[in-house]
Design a protein around this nucleic acid. Structure first.
Length: 554
RNA sequence: GUCCCAGUAGCUCAGCUGGAUAGAGCAACAGCCUUCUAAGCUGUGGGUCGCAGGUUCGAAUCCUGCCUGGGACGCCA
């Protein structure tokens, strides 16, 4: 348990005891004590609205309740310096000076582990994200999903969940047959033969490249062979080529997966038939097709599982896939989907229920669209390729750090304007640099300290850290594990970018107000060096969670 | 037509399991470098929280309706 939560728990307990002793409520009428951290410092370190909550139970005015509660409150047990009643009945607690005294040594001791907690109780969570069809490059929208999913996993991991990252490869079905046909056409063209791309084929440069490669590698060998055999080979070839590119881009982007799940394996292992049998009670035949009665579970229409031509719709193997995921025993499976898939949620929820699983285990995070701006104008297509802007281009243009930071800095359900010029700019407008600069600044200070004979000392007298800027920093540092845990529970990665920005801001403010290296006050200098080290560790840990580098100098 | 997301300062967005005077960055304006990196800091101005009702001691936050913007509504994936 982190220092701050210990303090809070102790305080809550004392508040509860005081309420009971004052006879304002008995055990079963006792509401949950809620503590908040007031934004305004004049309102103390913590505040509670318990008096207002009790107004109805105790049948008294909130302020009067507050006074009776306070008169029974044990200041010493809760490390409270002063209590004030304010406004309509808020009770504000001002903690003793040293209540944050152990935070710096704690952080120095924990190092890279500072911020980690057991909030997740080791629950197993699986996050499936990206899962782009291996028929082309990752573009803008996929990139946001990739960054979001990866950071969410980092957060869950730090908060004490067991996380598994999975990519679902759509290597069966229509789109992959189409890929094979497209490759075939490009191959034949590369050999100088007449061939046209299928109507709904893939027109990208990369497919032409595959065709060229094949023609160079095999000459007309494959043109001679049986079409079926040829397509089977081209399918594999194209799949490996495209998947290889995706994997490489993801690696560059700093995203890795624990498992790559093949849709094809569902066919091979007979999982789809098994799944269909399992939900047979909710299926029926109509118009020569097999339907899933998803309306029974709140979907707005029933869905086809087996088409007239006997093939499956996209949904069918996907249900089998979700069954497979749930059978693996996760406490929760989280899917990260693009906004264009939101309509898909009700039918999948229906399927989960038809399979007999608790629907709460199934969560979907919808990632809203990204709009790219350059020179103040919306960029619809890449200038280089004429197609949707690829992640690769974006990384080359503005760097991995900026792309990742920008993609997680906003709530996933807000659309995102990505300003290329801003992300590229190495200026004070750019939040990525602002945060990294704070880290680099500390590194410089610590280096200077070393050259003056100081070293980081975890036994430095941190009670000398008494200025307002210092206590602001201490409080912010202490909050970090809770911020991570909160972001994990709410599945809101942007809370971490927000936190790291705030911490950087406090550091810059402190830096400008106080001098760390002061030969006239050696003890205070030591304390500040320890504080700087603690801030450095926390900034680095937070940046690591986001997947952004923490440079030593800039 | 149905469903999802959004609507908060000039711009981009936090805040949304109800709480005190609604926050941040950018932009604007005024200051701070012989002093540990000015990629920084300090200050000022700027808001009918889309609109209208409702619930509540209390609503940006919850409920209902409406308006605006984006997206989705295939025997595509």
């Amino acid at each position: 348990m982190s220092l701050l939560t210990q303090t809070e728990e102790a305080l809550k307990q004392q508040i509860k005891d005081a309420v009971l002793q004052a006879g304002l409520a008995n055990e079963d009428k006792m509401p949950e004590v809620e503590l908040e951290k007031p934004k305004d410092k004049n309102h103390g370190d913590f505040a509670t609205n318990i008096a207002m909550q009790l107004a109805r139970v105790a049948k008294k005015a909130p302020r009067q309740i507050a006074e009776e509660m306070v008169s029974h409150f044990n200041h010493a047990e809760a490390s409270v310096e002063k209590v004030e009643i304010a406004g309509p009945g808020f009770i504000n607690f001002f903690m003793k000076e040293d209540f944050l005294g152990s935070i710096v040594p704690n952080i120095l001791k924990d190092g890279a582990a500072y911020g980690r907690s057991q909030a997740g109780n080791n629950e197993r969570v699986q996050v499936e994200f990206v899962s782009v069809n291996p028929t082309g490059d990752l573009h803008l929208g996929h990139a946001r999903g990739a960054a979001f999913g990866d950071v969410l996993c980092n957060i869950l991991d730090a908060a004490g969940y067991q996380v598994e990252r999975e990519y679902y490869i759509n290597d069966a079905g229509n789109q992959i047959d189409n890929l094979a046909l497209s490759v075939e056409a490009r191959y034949l063209q590369a050999l100088g033969q007449e061939a046209t791309l299928p109507e709904d084929g893939y027109h990208g440069e990369d497919i032409a490249e595959i065709g060229k490669q094949l023609s160079q590698e095999y000459g007309d060998e494959w043109a001679q062979k049986d079409k079926e055999e040829r397509l089977a080979f081209f399918k594999e070839y194209g799949l490996n080529y495209e998947l290889g590119k995706i994997k490489k881009d993801l690696q560059t982007f700093g995203v890795h997966f624990d498992s790559w799940f093949s849709e094809r394996s569902l066919y091979k292992d007979n999982k789809i038939v098994e799944t269909l049998e399992k939900i047979a009670a909710y299926t029926y035949e109509k118009d020569g097709a097999t339907w899933f009665r998803s309306t029974e579970f709140g979907d707005d229409k029933d869905r086809v599982l087996i088409k007239q031509d006997g093939s499956y719709t996209y949904l069918t193997p996907d249900i089998a896939y979700h069954k497979n995921k749930l059978d693996r025993g996760f406490n929760q499976i989280i899917n990260v989907w693009g906004a264009d898939h939101h309509g898909y949620i009700p039918r999948m929820r229906a399927a989960i229920q038809a399979l007999g699983y608790p629907v709460e285990k199934f969560a979907v995070k919808i990632i809203q669209m990204v709009n790219l701006f350059e020179n103040g104008e919306k960029v619809r297509m890449s200038k280089r390729t004429g197609k949707a802007v690829a992640l690769r281009e974006l990384m080359e243009e503005v760097g991995v750090d900026a792309v990742r930071y920008y993609f997680v800095m906003r709530s996933n359900d807000s659309q995102l304007d990505f300003d290329m010029d801003l992300a590229r700019s190495q200026s004070n407008d750019n939040p990525v640099f602002y945060v990294q600069y704070a880290h680099a600044r500390i590194c410089t200070m610590l280096k200077q300290a070393e050259s003056k004979g100081f070293s980081v000392d975890s036994k430095a007298d941190v009670s000398l850290l008494t200025t307002e800027k210092e206590s602001d920093l201490l409080k912010k540092l202490a909050a970090f594990p809770q911020v991570i845990a909160d972001a994990a529970i709410k599945q809101t990665p942007h809370k971490v970018t927000q936190y790291v920005f705030d911490l950087a801001s406090l550091l810059h403010s402190f830096y400008n107000a106080e001098k760390v290296l002061d030969m006239d006050h050696k003890e205070r200098t030591k304390a500040r060096i320890a504080l700087m080290q603690a801030v450095k560790i926390t900034l680095a840990n937070a940046l690591r969670v986001i997947g952004v580098s923490a440079p030593e100098k800039m």
